[in-house]
Simulated assay, not measured.
Amino acid sequence: MRLNYVENGPADAPVVLLGSSLGTTLEMWAPQVEVLAARHRVVAFDHRGHGESDAPKGPYSIEELGRDVVELLDALEVEQASYVGISLGGAVGLWLAQNASERFHRFAVICPPSNPAADAQMWADRAAQVRAEGTEAITDATLGRWFLPEFTETAAVRQMLIDTPDEGYAACCEALGSTNLLPGLTDITAPVLLVTTDSDTSIPPETVVPLASQIPGAHLEIIENAAHLVTYSHPEVINPLLLTHLA
């Protein structure tokens, strides 16, 4: 599986991988890359089925998405890295923390869906809608969940959603619809920064806050006056948290 990626920062600095949300590309990390690259070798990538990565026919699984990241580390000849992921990327981060811990120093998981299989039919319905009507059919509703009304700089994210391959988006929906990461949380050994927001209707905070007591030593941050795609809307809050955690 060929994942598209872009590197920034010193080649000999500690490596940080950035895993994006469902329906976006590595470009969603624009508010973080320059700040993180001052201290790290930053590798932002597109999940399978997204951006310029390969988009095989689905369904996909969270294991496949996670193994894609491990294979990317192998291709980069990187033994260990840290990982930052949001939404779908956060779920992938939780899988990696449970199943590939030897390859990672620490994790930041932001608004992660830890048990989306509990709402499997919703994910199946969304996959079917996108296959039938395209990602443009779900764009307005998605942006309404991702950002509060007062945040208006959404044009670039809207275009990412519209440009996402229909099959890739749908197949990642199916991956989420079959994923339950709760049973392995207590086995996580790497340091974890867990972030949620008070106004996230995609992955409500009440589904994220309890994870902090299940992941040993996890540090929880609840961002106020923010919705789901908080890395994009509130970099002035998120970036200092990431720098502190990754230091």
Rank of each mutant, 00 (worst) to 15 (best):
E71V: 10
R41M: 03
A37W: 13
R103S: 12
G51V: 07
V35P: 12
P56R: 10
M28N: 00
E64S: 10
V70N: 05
V70R: 02
D74M: 11
K57C: 12
R41L: 01
E77K: 10
R103Q: 10
E34Y: 07
G51W: 12
S87Y: 04
S20V: 14
V92K: 04
E63L: 03
M28S: 04
V84N: 03
A37F: 13
D46W: 12
V35E: 15
G90H: 06
L73R: 04
H50Q: 09
E34H: 14
S101F: 00
A100C: 11
G51N: 13
R48G: 02
V84D: 00
L88E: 02
L76Q: 10
G85W: 01
G89V: 06
A38I: 01
V43K: 12
R39Y: 08
L96I: 11
A37Q: 14
E34Q: 15
W29C: 01
V92A: 04
G89T: 08
P59H: 11
E27V: 12
R48Y: 03
H47G: 02
S20A: 15
I62L: 14
Y60T: 02
S82M: 04
G93D: 03
P56T: 11
K57W: 10
E34R: 15
V33F: 11
P31H: 07
I62G: 05
G66R: 03
L88I: 09
I62A: 03
A100R: 01
L88G: 03
Q80V: 15
G89N: 09
A37R: 15
W95L: 05
A37V: 06
F45D: 03
G66F: 00
W29S: 01
S20M: 14
Y83S: 07
I62S: 05
L88D: 02
D46S: 06
E63T: 15
A97Y: 00
E52Q: 15
L65Q: 10
E34I: 02
T24H: 11
S82K: 00
E77C: 06
T25D: 05
L73M: 13
L65G: 04
I86W: 00
V42L: 03
N99D: 05
L94F: 09
E102A: 12
L36G: 06
V69Q: 02
G66P: 07
